[in-house]
Amino acid sequence: MIEIDNISKKYGTFQVLRDCSTSVAKGEVVVICGPSGSGKSTLIQCVNGLEPVQQGRITVDGMNVTDKKTNLTQLRARIGMVFQHFELYPHMNVLENLCLAQEKVLNRTRSEAVAKAEALIERVGLSDHIHKHPGQLSGGQQQRVAIARSLAMDPIAMLFDEPTSALDPEMINEVLDVMVQLATDGMTMMVVTHEMGFARKVADRVVFMDEGRIVEDRKTEDFFSDPESPRLRDFLSKILQY
């Protein structure tokens, strides 16, 4: 479904990604972790072309993301993405947040869009809040709305860029629950996160990045039981310490 082939990227003289390759098969859940500045967020933003790459090739469902001729807007409409800071449209209420792209991009009728939105909002447990604006919701609620907004587009895959890092601890689980449910339902997912519990529970593979490189790309059980590189061992010991 998602193929990343030898991509490299620079910001000015700073090399953010070096020769990264990995893939996500249909229905697979891949977690990407690594210290801050390791390039994991940049990598995931390259998958739907939000960040351009200088070298290498990314294809999603057969479409070449790195080809300049590709219609990125069309591609993005088919891939869901969830951001660290939710990024809901602040001037629209929850329902409008879910309907906008359905109507303007997928050309669904108002009633189709509303029906879809209501079903998804119920699925993330926020039916009582459907007419509120993002600013009136808690962080966890906003992130659940953001997930629903992506799902409203019937995506073929979902990208998560540190979806719980900006949340207060007591709100992390409500978001992870929604994500676990999605994974169980067979959604193709690429998730940048430090939530190792989530990785253990649902990930098929875990990728570890450091200094712009993919250092390890392993089956989940091997990743935790048998880390090969000293850097990963060091990283795991730090984040699993408490």
Binding site: N48, T73, R76, A77, M81, F83, L100, V105, L106, S150
Partner: peptide, 27 residues
């Protein structure tokens, strides 16, 4: 307007013009 919001609108499938029309300008 935070850059992330523009990225989110694009990721949501909106075209460049739509991002301005429905998100950036109203806000």
């Amino acid at each position: 307007i935070p850059k992330g919001l523009k990225a989110a609108a694009k990721a949501n499938g909106l075209s460049g013009t739509q991002v301005y029309r429905y998100i950036l300008l109203p806000i």
